[in-house]
Design a protein around this nucleic acid. Sequence first.
DNA 1: ATTTTGAGTAAACTATTAGTATACTTAAAA
DNA 2: TTTTAAGTATACTAATAGTTTACTCAAAAT
Lengths: 224, 224
Amino acid sequence: MGRKEHSMEEKELRRGYIIDAAERVFFSIGYENASMDKVAREAGFTKKTIYMYFNSKVQIYFEIMIRGYRLLITMLEANFKEKKQGNAMDELRTIFLSFYQFSQECAPYFKAIMEYETKDCDQYTGVEDAAIDECYQLGERIFGYLSKSLDRGKEEGSVRGELDSEKTALILWAFTVGVFNTRERKKDYLKAYHNISSEEFMTDSFYMMMHLIAVKGEVEHERK
Amino acid sequence: MGRKEHSMEEKELRRGYIIDAAERVFFSIGYENASMDKVAREAGFTKKTIYMYFNSKVQIYFEIMIRGYRLLITMLEANFKEKKQGNAMDELRTIFLSFYQFSQECAPYFKAIMEYETKDCDQYTGVEDAAIDECYQLGERIFGYLSKSLDRGKEEGSVRGELDSEKTALILWAFTVGVFNTRERKKDYLKAYHNISSEEFMTDSFYMMMHLIAVKGEVEHERK
DNA sequence: ATTTTGAGTAAACTATTAGTATACTTAAAA
DNA sequence: TTTTAAGTATACTAATAGTTTACTCAAAAT
């Protein structure tokens, strides 16, 4: 059985190499412009071999996105540990700042996640259920942090008591997707038509969301 | 010159017929699944003829979206006239309710607009500048209503005075896109994982946004 | 030592589709 | 009666997801 395990490990490694190569291709010329021939050439394998490891092009996209989700969660958890915050509002701030940090430092992964968040769901044909499930699980984990911090804030009295933490977390996530999406797609529009930089837009949107959940007076001091 | 005008009119008519046919095709099987051959067959013309009227597939998509924007603005303006509201908060409510009404009654147009709002901007190759410009103009017009109502609310004292109307309007639009997008893409997820209907999600998101802009106490009575 | 097998290669093939080109018809304007 | 614009029919190009076929080769099994 030792040999089989060994070959399994090798397979996993090779799977990883192919995803690495696909990342290089997708991130440099974009998913739509990337052909499977290019991915195969970059990986140093035949297209046939690629299709032995992955069902479809979109399956590889999912694997890359899952890497992104994992990175985001790692970053989020690292920030949580580092900050050692007591206040729930600080926790919420940490969450949003982690999203922002991730969007800056892991821009291509972030873009992939945002595209997934705004993509038609019926385009998942060709993706293994396991991968779709994992995406949900990872999304739920992030959602859990948001929801838990809101709960803590309600106990503390820093978050408005009348809010339902679960629903509020979902709505905040929807708002956040909208904000990041707008920054991504309409950056030039914001600058040209409204003379607003994307940083300013992000900062203000973030402040709005904090204001939204905070008990009156709890967030005022943040305004610079 | 009368003949030339006449033939121009005919051309415009035929252009419209082609867009009608493309709508039927796109709305029934989706933009991605629709081929130009299908559009041509549905329109009763040759593909060549279609390409005499439109540069590209995505150009036709834009024309359809522009129709959608116009419909939305018509609906918005009709609601404004009908309601004859005095309060600026009522106006803002009318704007959001018009979006909601439009999303329900003109679902396919709405979907097209939402897809555009969340689509990569560098995928506009093959679209005439005139069409892109018109989209911006129409977007700006809707934005203007939002921004103007916020201004009025500030004067009246129903909207928080410290908000910048222009920036707030942009952020609200980003939030709105996020909310509608989430409803569209994650409907099943909301129900299955969080037992929240899409109506409840919409209502609560809407309430959040109203709370966000309102002076304390101004919006409380709305909660059922 | 010899055979079998699995994982790979090379390269051709299918099917679809955006967009173009060529050669023609036809009805109306000149 | 001739010219022209707008259309038709049809075949084409180029790209690309995904498949198939015939092969190679090293390692495992016998």
